[in-house]
């Protein structure tokens, strides 16, 4: 027995005189093209490895207990990441609380409730366009709408005389919520679409209402997929720097936020702050901060993958 996939080794003997091809050359070209594709795809991975190695080299010098408990300082030896970590936790907590219900609600509307009309397709197109808007533009939106509470000339979000939330945790969180909402919605839609129609029919068949069907059959089945999408969206939000710089997250914060209306900093902002300093010691602090940031992202992605694998194993479908 031999494999049918053995590579050809020589020019064939079946050659017609009118057709003149150099099969050796053809194979050589084919081989070269294959190598080119392989090399091309390895370049990206190689640079990824270089990047991680670059960070690994500088990223552990300042890694200590103090790094997690101290606030930033002008002296690199005692500078820490505490404020940034707490700020990110606060912001992400609120992003999760707000984007989950809105995102899933929108997905449910589009998949289960909406009639296919112009408005629905407008909303759908709008969601995909919104996903392509540069994040800094969301920052401009957040700055006006949430920080200052105005749209153009008129006030939009005001409580009494006080307009907007200022440069606070909640402003950052709401801005990031709007930013990741398209991702959450699209991922949830995919998960809801994957629930087989037979389940809905079975539920409607025993006289369940739309909401009963959705809440007790469709959502539970779609939940692992929704959670995966949600975690991936949050991991995108954690690394976002530009929009929260726009809304004015501070780059030097020697305290931790105690409530949603407090000013804050976040992990990528603190990293940026350290990068912007000329001294090499601060670059090492930045690398340390990046290690923490990347490990956080890695953990979140691992959780998402685990959920996906468990979904596969349970054989939901």
């Amino acid at each position: 027995m031999r494999s049918a996939n053995d590579p050809p080794t020589s020019q064939s003997r079946l050659v017609l005189s009118e057709y003149q091809t150099n099969n050796v050359l053809r194979h050589l070209k084919g081989r070269l093209f294959y190598l080119l594709c392989l090399l091309g795809s390895l370049v990206g991975i190689l640079l990824l490895v270089t990047l991680l190695n670059d960070i690994r080299q500088d990223g552990f010098h300042y890694m200590s207990k103090h790094f997690f408990t101290n606030f930033p300082s002008r002296k690199p030896e005692i500078a820490g990441f505490h404020g940034a970590i707490m700020g990110t936790l606060w912001v992400m907590g609120i992003v999760a609380i707000t984007s989950f219900p809105i995102g899933v609600g929108a997905a449910l509307y589009l998949e289960e409730y909406a009639i296919k009309n112009k408005l629905t397709s407008l909303i759908q197109t709008n969601i995909s366009n919104l996903a392509g808007v540069p994040s800094i533009v969301f920052g401009i939106l957040g700055l006006q709408l949430f920080v200052r509470g105005t749209i153009g000339y008129g006030p939009a979000i005001c409580i009494g005389e006080q307009c907007g939330f200022g440069r606070s945790v909640i402003s950052g969180a709401l801005t990031l919520t709007l930013l990741i909402l398209p991702i959450v919605i699209v991922a949830s839609q995919e998960a809801i679409k994957a629930v087989p129609p037979s389940i809905r029919e079975a539920s409607y068949g025993v006289g369940a209402t739309r909401w009963q069907t959705v809440s007790s059959h469709v959502l539970p089945q779609a939940m692992p997929g929704i959670m995966t999408g949600m975690i991936l969206a949050l991991s995108r939000a954690i690394g976002e720097t530009a929009p929260i710089i726009m809304i004015g997250a501070l780059t030097f914060v020697a305290f931790r936020p105690e409530g949603p209306l407090d000013p804050f900093t976040a992990m990528p902002i603190q990293v940026l702050n350290w990068i912007s300093r000329p001294q090499a010691a601060f670059h090492e602090l930045a690398a340390t901060g990046i290690v923490v940031l990347l490990i956080t992202l890695l953990t979140m992605n691992a959780i998402a993958v685990l959920i996906r694998i468990r979904l596969g194993q349970s054989g939901a479908r």
């Binding site: 990824l48 990047l51 670059d54 960070i55 500088d58 991991s235 995108r236 954690i238 690394g239 976002e240 720097t241 530009a242 990528p268 990293v271 940026l272 990068i275 670059h283 930045a286 690398a287 990046i290 940031l293 990347l294 992202l297 992605n301």
Partner: peptide, 13 residues
């Protein structure tokens, strides 16, 4: 998936 500020660090350093 890598935050862009990390790319900034890589580019600069």
């Amino acid at each position: 998936g890598i935050p862009t500020v990390v790319y900034g660090y890589f580019a600069l350093t």
